[in-house]
């Protein structure tokens, strides 16, 4: 059976992609942030996962307000990045996957989740920045990516509890897939930040650390927040925690935190990184 070997949480802030393009990794502003990544890259190199399921949100590249899925899953052989309007360089095509992803789609619907199924979508920085961070130099082509998109831009959004359960359903679907693939799951975005309104610039580092702790020891405690709770406590875009909860739901075994890093602010955001083994 296919096996989920672990999960990785990471920020996906566009400024990270821009910093990498400009070679700013070792500058005073960025060095603490980028210093977190080599152990994760080493683990990925050692483990050689075949497939990466990436929970992300689309910030208005593919999924405009006209047709915006609450949950979506990609089942395409390839994904392209494109101009997002404000100067982040596009990255080469991302390799997709069409067998496990269709199996997940079938299993999700069988178990009462009904995502939009996508055979041709552009993927934005929510997905591409994490790939660039994990495999610098665009060396991600060997990994088959299954994008899983959660609406974090327009209310009503799926609840944290639902995102966690959605992840659990994906985790069970992977475990029932006949094959010997090794799968890693990414939860991207977050943590606390608020880009809009008079409260712009708010972040909550203490809460971010608490989330990272609870994500390991008691993820269900995090599912008891409503999205509005998260907005109050962690800022308007703090709801991106939902992608982390989706990832965590996929880890159905005994989890072990192998590594973490946290830097705030990066751009306007608390930037968290965790590497979690799923035994």
């Amino acid at each position: 059976m296919a096996r989920i070997i672990g999960g990785i949480t990471t920020s996906h802030i566009p400024a990270i992609g821009i910093a990498m393009d400009r070679g700013l990794e070792n500058t005073p502003y960025w060095k603490d942030f980028f210093a977190g990544y080599p152990p994760v890259r080493k683990w990925l190199h050692e483990q050689q996962p075949d497939i990466a399921i990436v929970f992300y949100n689309d910030h208005g590249l593919e999924m405009f307000l006209d047709k915006k899925p609450t949950f979506a899953i990609g089942c395409a052989p390839e994904y392209h990045n494109a101009d997002e309007g404000w100067g982040i360089a596009t990255i080469p095509p991302v390799t997709g996957e069409t067998e496990l992803s269709w199996h997940i789609a079938n299993e999700l619907i069988e178990h009462d989740f009904d995502p939009t199924i996508c055979q041709d979508i552009k993927v934005d920085h929510g997905l591409t920045v994490p790939l660039s961070l994990m495999w610098p130099g665009h060396n991600y082509g060997h990994v088959k990516v299954i994008p899983v998109c959660i609406n974090c831009e327009r209310h009503p959004m799926p609840k944290p509890s639902r995102c966690y359960a959605f992840g659990q359903a994906i985790g069970r679907a992977v475990e029932s897939f006949p094959g010997d693939q090794k799968v890693v799951v990414f939860g991207t975005g977050g943590l606390s930040h608020q880009l809009d309104g008079e409260r712009a610039g708010f972040l909550n580092a203490d809460f971010d650390i608490e989330c990272m702790d609870k994500l390991i020891t008691d993820p269900e405690a995090l599912t008891r927040y409503s999205n509005n709770d998260l907005i109050e406590i962690a800022g308007a875009q703090g709801v991106e925690l939902n992608m982390w909860l989706g990832m965590r739901g996929c880890l159905l075994g005994e989890v072990e935190e192998l590594h973490r890093n946290y830097v705030a602010p990066i751009s306007n955001t608390g930037a968290g990184l965790q590497l979690i083994a799923n035994h």
Binding site: R199, I231, A236
Partner: peptide
């Protein structure tokens, strides 16, 4: 109500559609 925050919800999305488009 969340101070200093305008939730982007259905009614706001209706109102803002031309601008966002």
């Amino acid at each position: 109500e969340i101070p200093g925050t305008i939730l982007f919800d259905g009614p706001m999305s209706t109102k803002g559609y031309p601008l966002n488009k």
